[in-house]
Design a protein around this nucleic acid. Structure first.
Lengths: 140, 140
DNA sequence: CCTTGACCTGGACCACACTCCAGGTCGTAC
DNA sequence: GTACGACCTGGAGTGTGGTCCAGGTCAAGG
């Protein structure tokens, strides 16, 4: 239903769309990865008469969104769930909020871990870059 | 030193050591992972008469160090190189410094990425948590 | 008509970092 | 002396997230 409506809208309203190659150029996401995301249900760009993908602005926005979420280590599975909720409509906004809040917490925790490691790294740099002397004090 | 000397005198000529199970308890690193790290050359705890691993303080320190580096996404391969340099002695300190500086830069870049994603995540939370109204504006 | 290039498909393959397993050994406890 | 638990080994298996490939379609240009 929705897909059909969308296809009709694209064909009749002439929204400008991008080919997959243009999306690759614009987002830096590879052809294969775009196909993979589509296979996993994260994207559903409409097709032209020849079966080729035509990415609308909304599709490109979603590619960028997915990229950001992947960058912050949101698993594909969670993204699948989130996108499915988006497709279901506004009634699912509370669940989407929960997903995002949980993800924010995960990202903050991850950042803390990174900062902890950073302290060690900088200690090592201090030792090696500073005295260049006896540095083998904690196992490595 | 005094405490150590006493224990050494009581036992054999060695410092106190931990069994693998104790290291698991103390570091949270699994038995299998400890074995894996050892196979990859990151650890080399001495063995007792029966061939069982005995972790010295220096070994435990290295386990903790490895854990921190892994936590900050240093690949095993880099860790292998770093540890090999440590084994080679103080002459390699400049190279170790380079590895750590490169890793620090990578971690800082990673943190920036996380922060960028965090901005998007918080935007979503704002949208869903705030008005709970028209939120579907950028593809997801 | 034939070539070229962009695009399509399903499915095999890959790197990474573990994680699990079967089968064997060792040392104390009963 | 045998039962037990902790430990050992090599090697196979797992999950995640892509990445690559062979073979096919289609539209436009020479």
């Amino acid at each position: 239903m929705t897909l059909t409506d969308t296809l009709v809208a694209v064909e009749t309203l002439d929204e400008p769309t991008l080919s997959i190659a243009e999306v690759v150029d614009r987002t830096g996401v590879s052809h294969d990865t775009l196909r993979y995301y589509e296979k996993e249900g994260l994207l559903a760009p409409p097709r032209d008469g020849g079966g080729r993908r035509r990415y609308r602005e909304v599709d490109i926005g979603r590619v960028v969104f997915i990229t950001r979420m992947r960058q912050s280590e949101m698993p594909i599975r969670v993204l699948q769930r989130y996108v499915a909720l988006v497709e279901e409509g506004p009634a699912t906004e509370r669940q989407r909020l929960e997903i995002m809040e949980a993800h924010r917490d995960a990202v903050l925790a991850r950042r803390t871990e990174l900062d902890e490691a950073l302290a060690i790294i900088e200690m090592k740099i201090e030792i090696y870059g500073g005295t260049l002397g006896s540095a083998g004090s904690c196992g490595a």
